[in-house]
Design a protein around this nucleic acid. Structure first.
Lengths: 213, 213
DNA sequence: TTGGTATGTTAGTAAGCACTTACTTATTTT
DNA sequence: AAAATAAGTAAGTGCTTACTAACATACCAA
């Protein structure tokens, strides 16, 4: 399908099909400049195709966004990791879960930026996807915590709420670091943060009785 | 300064000066549609002035955004509330802090949406402001936690990290609810969430020794 | 009364945007 | 070889946008 003229083809142009290159370029530019801010000319240039080619694949700009939202939003990886960490200590297990969660967010960083920027423009779709992604996460982690509860490691409490707290800590950590771009000035490494956060969370949910203040 | 013709003036037009009305309208529309998406015509209409009047106050659209960023970003309220809750139990104190934090975020919701959307466009300014706001919060709460540590209520740990975990939980709660627009389907009220989150956090940081798993 | 100031109305300009038309060129398939 | 396919070049259309020019009008202060 792809073809060249006299110009030196880049490796991307040789291997990746045009449609995919357009989508990737759009993802990059939408996340940097927003849906309106990224022009079709820019996207075509970034993809290394003529603007007309872009319109032959996507007759309206809108359709690029729709396909991005539909095809690049499979955001459920955490579910698969939990069986693999069942045998670990809960500290080690949650540490792994936190890492996988952060890595997943970072893989989808561009899409998540678009979600945050354009959630007014695509309210139902974006909400729906983000919603199912998060609920999926919460329920998965809550399921794991329920196992711990049966072993009386975790006290009686709303586990869904606990799961939200856990992911909330790392979600806002991700937003600060990767979306807004904070850099830590205290010398604390990411490993330190993850360890400390997990430590706090485990202390926060453990015990068999409810009260104890 | 403001003057009317034959049309019925609204109360806003009578009291609030034109420049402020333009800024407020811009804040609303920027947060809803982004900087590029909100047109000067829309802003003028929302402010109830002629488009030309907008340009007489702000010769370039860019200057509206700059003034918004400079004048509407005083985001430090939590600092003032801590002295008032020193006498309460730490559970009640942290509950209050969480409420004030959430209320502060909600008051500045529009600006925070702009921050998140346009942080690629205004990297230094936005980072700087968001940074100082958050650091302010973290240090203030860390100071309070240090008091608790002296009383041996809180165990030895990185208090700044603990403060980040605390605010992280509520920050992501805010983003889910107020920015993205999730609504809870489980019937759990906001009070429930705050209480449970605080409970987890307090358990998470209390104790005098470090280890204990 | 007069002049300054803040606003309004109307009409416009130049640029940029999404998107189109007409035609050409290379590659693959039949 | 012929046909089909996927891409390119170049020019342009109609719309919207930020921003301006020319002029009118209401208010307030001297």
């Amino acid at each position: 399908m792809p073809r060249q003229k006299k110009t030196q083809p880049t490796s991307e142009e040789q291997t990746i099909p045009t449609r995919e290159r357009i989508l990737s370029a759009a993802l990059t530019l939408f996340s940097q400049q927003g849906y309106i801010g990224a022009t079709t000319r820019q996207i075509a240039a970034e993809a290394g195709v003529a603007e007309l080619t872009l319109f032959r694949h996507f007759p309206r700009k809108e359709l690029i966004m729709q396909e991005l939202l539909q095809t690049r939003s499979s955001l459920s990886v955490v579910r698969e990791v939990l069986p693999k960490v069942q045998h670990l200590s809960c500290k080690a297990a949650l540490n792994t879960v936190a890492r996988v969660f952060l890595a997943t967010l970072r893989e989808r960083k561009e899409l998540l930026k678009i979600f945050l920027s354009e959630c007014s423009r695509y309210p139902e779709q974006v909400k729906e996807m983000h919603f199912s992604f998060m609920v999926n996460l919460f329920e998965t982690l809550a399921g794991y915590l329920q196992e711990l509860q049966k072993k009386e490691i975790v006290r009686s409490m709303d586990l869904r709420c606990a799961a939200q707290a856990f992911f909330g800590i790392f979600y806002s950590y991700f937003i600060s670091r990767d979306i807004i771009g904070f850099s830590d000035t205290t010398g604390t490494t990411e490993d330190d943060y993850i360890r400390d956060y997990v430590e706090i969370f485990i202390h926060g949910i453990q015990g068999t009785a409810y009260g104890k203040l």
